[in-house]
């Protein structure tokens, strides 16, 4: 028998959700349509909803014509694309690994002054990044980390840690410790209690945390702008450079970039959705 989640609703619910989703998605839809519009259609008033789609904006991301020639030159955008995937992926994995361990520590083996540690960890996220960027920039220059993958991955790992720790701790806190104690009684080692009992119960939390961390890292602009070089630059600063000033924004080109930019994150979120929505079947109440 199929179990009810909260309520098993039918197509009527789908219709309602579709309307809501469409309204919510509308600005994004506009951006996607703009990516396929030709230059002359981009700013038409009223907006053209029906038009013949072109791929010229996508082509121009990778190949641009030089100032006064008709020759097209590669822009190197694929390198930035790869960098974004590599740097975001590595730093999110690291933050999740270190963060989950720490969260488990904070939740199950509290130290003296546990809350103070947690609070200090949180305060590192409170300062405007503009303030800390100057010393970080200097430290990275001295240690030779500036412009390297290691440097920016380290930076983003630290950037994601506070959130990962707090998120995972709140999930660990919700678990029932009786199951853990029972498996300890049965002779399970600490390691298998952690991996075998706790981790499966916080899968939804891991999925949610990694999606958020990934999205924040993927979109991060300032650190990447200042701490990477031509070879390690990620997409957000590369996009900003291509677009140039704010005055004459090439909306079509920007829209095409946004489309490319959103695809990897969209796919990963879609794949993690199962974990996110399945929920915990054997979790029991704590209190």
């Amino acid at each position: 028998m199929k179990k009810k989640a909260i309520g098993q609703s039918g197509w009527l619910w789908t219709a309602l959700a579709s309307v809501v989703a469409f309204i919510y998605f509308f600005p994004v839809l506009f951006i996607i349509l703009t990516a396929f519009r030709s230059r002359s259609d981009t700013l038409a008033t009223p907006p053209k909803w029906i038009f013949s789609p072109t791929f010229e904006n996508f082509y121009h991301i990778f190949f641009r014509s030089m100032a006064n020639s008709t020759e097209y030159v590669a822009t190197g955008f694929h390198v930035y694309f790869f960098n974004s995937i590599y740097i975001s992926g590595m730093s999110v994995l690291l933050a999740l690994l270190i963060g989950t361990l720490a969260a488990y520590g904070f939740s199950r083996h509290p130290l003296r002054g546990n809350d103070t540690y947690l609070f200090i960890i949180l305060t590192t996220r409170m300062l405007p990044p503009i303030i800390v960027i100057v010393p970080i920039f200097l430290i990275f220059r001295i240690t030779g980390l500036a412009g390297t993958y290691t440097g920016i991955i380290l930076m983003y790992t630290a950037f994601n840690l506070p959130f990962s720790i707090w998120m995972m701790k709140s999930f660990f806190d919700e678990l029932n410790t009786e199951i853990e104690d029972a498996s300890r009684m049965d002779g399970a080692s600490e390691r298998s209690v952690f991996f075998g009992v706790c981790i499966p119960q916080v899968k939804a939390g891991l999925a949610a945390t990694s999606v958020f961390a990934l999205i924040l890292t993927w979109n991060e602009f300032l650190f990447s702008l200042l701490l990477t070089n031509k070879l390690t630059r990620t997409m957000p600063p590369a996009m900003a450079r291509t677009i140039g000033g704010e005055i004459n924004v090439d909306y079509g080109l920007l829209a095409a970039m946004i489309c490319l930019f959103i695809i990897p994150i969209f796919l990963i979120t879609y794949l993690l959705q199962n974990q996110l929505l399945r929920g915990v079947t054997f979790g029991t109440i704590k209190k």
Binding site: I6, Q8, G10, T14, A17, Y24, F25, Q273
Partner: peptide, 16 residues
Amino acid sequence: SQFPLRKILLMFVLAP
């Protein structure tokens, strides 16, 4: 709640 097409519709809402 569970309903048909939930996964796809959710992706639209998450996009922003």
